[in-house]
Each structure stands twice: as C-alpha cells, then as structure tokens.
Design a protein around this nucleic acid. Structure first.
Length: 796
DNA sequence: GAGCACTGC
C-alpha cells in the first residue's frame, strides 16, 4: 500500500494526521460498540437462554480485546480467542482492511467524497439497525404465540387452580417443585392474574444468583408480552431494572435483605416467594427469620417458600407446619453407577472413567466434577497425554476446563456446540453444580469431593478444605446429566459410602462463616441483643460465632455498652461490606481521605484474583505487580496505586493486560467504588482526597482493622497482638521481604501455614491512639525487651 | 517463597 508522508497529509489540509488517527480510533470503537448495543437490544426483546446470554457477555469482552488491539500474534497466544468468534475476528480484520482502503480514498478524493462516504455509512447503519429491529419485533411476536402454548404444557399448569386456592386458604406455603416444573416463571404470573398485584403491591421472587434473576425476569416479561423493566422487572446490585409499573419483581435474595433496611414490614409487597430455598444461602437463611416475623405482623402478606428437595418437612416445621404443595417435574431418568470398592486416587479414577465412557458409550458429552483449578489442570494434562497415546483409532475428545477464575474469553469454550463425531469433556468445579448449565451433557463423573470454606470463630481463621459432598449435592450433580435426555452418573465411591458416609445435606453457610456482617444487619433492623439471641434461625449458627461478632462490633464502636446500635454502627450498616471495612470508611471522615479509602475498600472486597498469574509467565506477572509497591508502601496502598493507575489510563483494558491484572475484577472494583461513593453521600461523609498523606490513609485503615495487628517476634515470625498465635506474611505480599516490626493485615488464611494476606506497616503509637480501649501500653512494647509469652518461644 | 470452591450485598 502507498504510504503517505506526514507532510503530504498536512498539505492536503484535510485533517492533521493525529486528528485523523484519533477519528479513526473513535469510529472503530463506535462500530464495535454499536454491534454490542444491537445485541443488548436483542437481549431486551427476546429472552436469552443462559448460554446465549453468556455468549453475549463474551462477545462484549472480545470487542474490548479488539479495541485494545489484542489480536496480534503475541496476545493471541496469551488470551486465546475461542473459535466460535472466528466470524467476529474476520469481521474485524475485514473492517481494518476496509478502513485502509477508505483511508486511501479519503486522501485521494479529498474532503467531499469522504464526507459522502461517511453519509452513506451512516445511512447504511441506520438501515441495518431498522432492519434488525423489524426482525426482532417479528420474532418476538411469533415467539409470544409459541410461549403461550409452552406455558400450558408445563407440569404446574394442571395445578393452577388448586394452587391459587391453597394460597387463598393459607398464609404460608412450602412448595416442592422439581426442576422443570415451571414454578419460578409461572407462580408469580398466576398470582398476578389472580389479583394479588392490585392495590399497587408487588410480588417478589428471590433468587440466589444475579444471572437467574435477570434471565427469569426476561423470560417472564416475554411470556406476559411486556417490556422488561415495566410490569416485570428485576433488581440486583448495581442494576435496578424496575419502574413504577412493576408488579412482578425478581431479585437476588441479598437485595431483598437490603430492602428490609428501608421497609421492615415489606409494605410494597403482597407476596414474597423465596425460591431455591434449599440452597440455604446466607441471605435466604436470614430472610427466613425476618419474613416469618413479618408474616405474624402482616396477615395479608403471603409467603411462599420454594425448594427442590424432598426435605420440605423441615421447612414446613419451621414455618409453623405450613402446608406442603408438591408439583411434579419434567426430568429424564439418570442411571447411577457406583464403584465396587473405594478408589485410592480419585483423579486417576476420573481419567480412566472418562476414557472408558469415550471408548464404549454412545455419543454425549461428559461432565467431571473436580475440586479446584489445580486438579482441573492436572487432569487436563493427563487426559491430553493419554488421548495422544490412543492415536487415531478413537474419536476426538475436546477437553474444556471451567472454573470461576478462568478468564471470561476462555470460559466461552464450554458453550460451543460439540462437532459431529467428537465428544466434549468438561472439567468443572462446583460452578457447574448450580451456577451454570451446559447443554448436551449425558454423562457425569462424580468423585464425591468439593472445597468448602470453614470458619473457626475462636481464632477467626477461614480455611478452604477438601471435603466429601452431601447426598443432596450428589443428587444435584447426577441430575446434571439428565437435562436433555436420559443420562448416566458414575460415582467414584461405593454405594455403601453414599448411604453411610455422606451427610444428607451440606451444612448451611450461616453455620460456617464469620457473622459480623449478619449481626450488624440484624441490629440495624432493630433485632438487638436479647432479641438477636432469640432470633429464630432455621439452623442456628454456633453461639460462639454470634458472641464473637458482637464483641467485634462493640470494639469497633458499632455497639455501646448497653448492647445498642450506636450512630457509628448505623452508618456502618449502610455499607454492604464487612464491618471492619465499613468502619474504615466511616473513620476516613476524620482523616479526610474518604476518596482513597473507598478505592481501597472496593479493591479489598473484590478479593484475591486481581493479579493474573499465568503459569508460564509468573516472573513477568510478579515484576508487574512489584511496580505498584515502590517505597514499601504496603499492600493496601499498592491496591490504591493499581486502581488509580487504571483510572489514569481511562479504565483501559489494554493497560490491565500489560500489567497482568484481570479486567473483570477491576471493572467490578469500579462498580463497587461507585456504589460506595453514593453511600458516602447517604451517611453524609464528604468525598475528600488526601493522596499525599499516606499515614492518614493507614490510620483510617487501622481504625477498622486494629484487631488485626501482628508484631514481629524474636524468632522472625509474627505474633498476633492480644492472641498467642504465630502467623506469617504471605509471600505474595509486597512486605514479605521487608519484615516490618508491626503490621496490620486484612485477612488470615490457613493453607500450609497461617498466612496474613494484604499487609501494611503501622506505628505502635497508632494502636494506642486509635484503639485505647483495646490495647494497653504493654501490648505494643517491643517484644524483644519483654519476656516471651508462653508457647511462642523459639523452636529447638 | 506460595496456592485461592461458589455466591451475594
């Protein structure tokens, strides 16, 4: 192609080269954005299935990659783009070519022609949009007719009148609806049709997951023939898609819990349906207690507890012997096979079983449940190796790993249809148990383990342990094979084990988590002190955990000596964060650095997967990370540096890739930060920046995290101040080599050792200044000048 | 010098 010198361009007098390039970038960006917008539009009009929805999301990410020019060879290897997006890649390349040609023409033909070209383009785009819109409307009309027929075929349709009668007769009903019964989509509609939304009151239906709330709302709006967000809407964090018209509202359970803060009697609702109650999320468990109480105060409020399991008796007993309404499901049979004897190595057994299925069983994809990323990577490698050994005698086996931390572009692979003659094997964590469904799975391999979080209220340590799953969980896993046709489930344990070793149900989250936030929420709902100790939990958490939470809240100044919520506590409760983080924000008012503190809080709550560390580029990734630690500022300030640097690049995705940072996490952090900024206004704390005074920022952090102080001991390890407990700085910390005398940490995790994650150096006098009620002089004195506490002496 | 299941506000 003919090159044009910069001087030529200037003499043409059209645009300066820089301006031209900028214009070109902008147009390219706009074009891509338009495509995504079009897809969004489609999403609004026609409810997407979950896999379609995810594909839309992935497409957006791909567009970001394209914009960030990540399609060149190097990055292609680093962020492999799934084949399904080949068309998009081609389009982008063609687009690029067309731009080049147009560029040439642009200069050759001068301003007018180019302008005309632009006009044509615009007209073309308008036309395309109009056309797409027409098709969409037509499709949606046709779909509505089909949907109406489909509604009548659902198992629940036959029980419609019987169900409405039951709701009329009873205030609380426990619904047992197997998967595919249509309860989630139909029940709110029936109630709406039966007049429960008169008098301006809504029907609420809670879901444990955001995607579920969105896609179900989209589906129902389509069935009812209304625009999503009007009569039917959804409400999830960062996104309220409802209006004054809304009568049927799908929401996450956590969102309803938040709404309780504003309206403790749930005045705007006539019916509350707690769906997927058997999952026993932290939020559902608290909702149970609250909603049961409200039902007593408001006889007109109807309560539906919907669960998929057969232990509905327990729910019924809890809700004062509420009647149980059973709805059959529509499922295919699943044949279950056990091993004859226990397997010594379940990874090996999983590989062997996979290959056996591949060699002997009829077509259909395989889903293997593993406990984590590491196992998945190991099995992937072994499988690849073994398949290579089999040569061409056998059909192709496509291996797809999936876990939550896998970059989004790579996750898309599992939704690609399996090519004719090949077989797909999906290696998944628990994410495939409930959070996402994969079409075409016919065989499930279940080794019977998962990783589970446990919390020790005495030490405050959380740890992830590989644990046997429960019977309920095993059934759920098996059910994943019978979604589109009869399936088979291979359990890598004996039938005896299943009967005798596995618990019936997974212990609810509320029994194995830090309750500080739960207790604060309940306090701000007026459930204080004795009332809280009497709170009707379906499965009460350990008394120790509640006591520990109260103690912490008292130390943070959220509760006073009489066990009442203080003004500080009330402000803290506004933030959807761990109380220590909330306290840190409230304290930032005093140190005039709220701007920096909410950035840090947002980054901390996104968690530990911000820094991406690919196996083959660990050194690069670590070096990139160290750039944010200059001056040994500590991990908290490093997080602040990351966020601010990203902000300075105008939230560039490209910058993230260069620095081995996960874009997804950063976007999430930005969303949280925006929300926190809004909440600051609510609690009347001014947004002030004080970026030069690092001590002020550290003091704010310490105001929330002073119980997490650890000091260096003679033997080089750390000891928690106030607790005789040895801890270590996590090697990923920027301070791991610095070894300061006194530090605060964000969290303590137990892996091979007890590690402090996210560490910042503090001064001893700050402890006395900020927490005189908690620390005494002898706590902060240099440990070397003092006798060693018992049990913490040197080894040997 | 080391490993992080999954959600949600």
């Amino acid at each position: 192609m003919k090159r044009i010198a910069a001087t030529d361009i200037e003499t043409l007098g059209v645009v300066s080269r820089q301006n031209y390039l900028k214009l070109r970038e902008e147009r390219k960006l706009q074009q891509l954005k338009d495509e995504v917008e079009d897809d969004r539009y489609l999403f609004e009009e026609i409810p997407l299935s979950e896999s379609e929805y995810r594909r839309t999301m992935y497409k957006e990410e791909i567009c970001n990659l394209l914009v960030a020019n990540k399609l060149d060879e190097n990055h292609n290897e680093y962020y492999r783009i799934p084949e399904a997006f080949d068309d998009l890649k081609c389009a982008a390349v063609n687009q690029e070519k067309r731009f080049s040609v147009a560029t040439q023409g642009y200069y050759d033909n001068h301003k007018e022609e180019a302008w005309e070209d632009n006009q044509i383009k615009k007209a073309f785009c308008d036309k395309k949009f109009e056309f797409k819109r027409e098709i969409t409307l037509e499709k949606s009309r046709a779909k509505r007719l089909v949907l109406n027929e489909e509604r009548k075929k659902l198992p629940i349709y036959a029980f419609r009148d019987e169900f409405l009668q039951a709701v009329n007769d009873h205030q609380i009903i426990v619904i047992v609806g197997e998967t595919g019964s249509g309860k989630t989509t139909q029940i709110p509609q029936y109630l709406h049709e039966d007049g429960y939304t008169k008098h301006g009151r809504m029907i609420a239906c809670t879901q444990p997951r955001r995607v579920a709330a969105m896609s179900v709302a989209a589906r129902v709006s389509q069935e009812m023939g209304v625009k999503l967000g009007h009569e039917v809407g959804y409400s999830i964090r960062f996104e309220d898609c409802t209006s004054e018209k809304t009568v049927v509202k799908y929401m996450t359970d956590g969102m309803l819990l938040r709404e309780f803060l504003a309206q403790p009697e749930l005045d705007s609702y006539s019916v509350v349906m707690v769906d997927e109650a058997h999952e026993r999320t932290l939020s559902t468990d608290i909702l149970f207690g609250l909603v049961k109480d409200v039902a007593r105060a408001r006889p007109d409020l109807k309560l539906l507890i919907s669960s998929a399991t057969l232990d509905a008796e327990k729910f019924s007993n809890y809700f004062d012997l509420a009647p149980i309404f059973k709805i059959p499901g529509r499922r295919y049979p699943v044949e279950i096979q056990y091993t004859k004897s226990p397997e010594a190595n379940y990874l090996d057994a999983a590989v062997v079983t996979t290959l056996q299925i591949h060699a002997t069983q009829s077509p259909g994809d395989i889903l293997v449940f593993l406990t984590g990323q590491e196992e998945i990577e190991t099995v992937e490698q072994i499988l690849k190796h073994r398949v290579r050994g089999l040569g061409t005698k056998i059909a192709e086996l496509i291996i797809c790993p999936i876990y939550a931390n896998l970059p989004t572009e790579l996750q898309a692979k599992i939704f690609e249809p399996t090519p004719e003659g090949a077989r797909k094997v999906v290696l998944a964590t628990n994410i495939a148990e409930t959070s996402l469904t994969i079409d075409g799975i016919k065989y499930v391999i279940d080794p019977g383990f998962c990783k589970m979080k446990t919390y020790n209220p005495r030490t405050g340590i959380e740890s992830l342990l590989v644990t046997p799953i429960s019977k309920a969980s095993a059934m759920q896993r098996a059910g994943r094979s019978g979604r589109t046709g009869p399936g088979k489930c291979f359990r890598l344990y004996t039938a005896y084990s299943f009967q005798n070793d596995l618990d019936d149900n997974t212990s609810p989250e509320i029994q194995r988590t830090n309750l500080a936030n739960v207790v604060l929420t309940l306090y701000s709902l007026g459930i204080e002190h004795e009332k809280l100790l009497r709170f009707e939990f379906m499965d009460p958490p350990p008394a120790d955990a509640i006591k520990k939470a109260m103690e912490l809240l008292y130390n943070l100044g959220a509760l006073n000596g009489q066990g009442k919520l203080t003004k500080v506590g009330r402000r803290m409760a506004e933030f959807p964060l761990d109380p220590m983080l909330s306290k840190m924000i409230v304290a930032s008012e005093k140190y005039k650095c709220s701007d920096e503190i909410i950035s840090i809080a947002a980054m901390l709550s996104v968690g530990n997967s911000i820094f991406y560390r690919p196996k083959d580029k660990q050194v690069h990734a670590d070096n990139a990370r160290l750039n944010f630690h200059s001056g040994d500022v500590g991990d908290h300030i490093a997080y602040l540096n990351v966020f601010n640097s990203w902000k300075e690049t105008n939230y560039s995705s490209e910058w993230c890739y260069e620095n081995y940072i996960q874009v997804r996490c950063m976007k999430h952090a930005r969303d949280i930060r925006d929300q926190l900024a809004g909440l600051l206004e609510r609690v009347e704390i001014e947004l002030i920046s004080n970026s030069n005074d690092l001590d002020a920022i550290k003091k704010s952090i310490l105001s929330g995290f002073f119980p997490h102080a650890a000091k260096l001991q003679k033997n080089g390890t750390y000891g928690r101040v106030k607790h005789l407990q040895t801890v270590h700085i996590h090697p990923s910390s920027g301070l791991a080599e610095v070894v300061p005398r006194l530090v605060l940490y964000h969290e303590l995790v137990l892996t091979t050792k007890e590690y402090m994650r996210q560490v910042t150096e503090i001064k001893p006098e700050w402890l006395l200044e900020i927490a005189p009620h908690y620390y005494q002089l002898n706590d902060v004195e240099d440990s070397s000048s003092k006798k060693m506490p018992r049990g913490c002496g040197l080894a040997h």
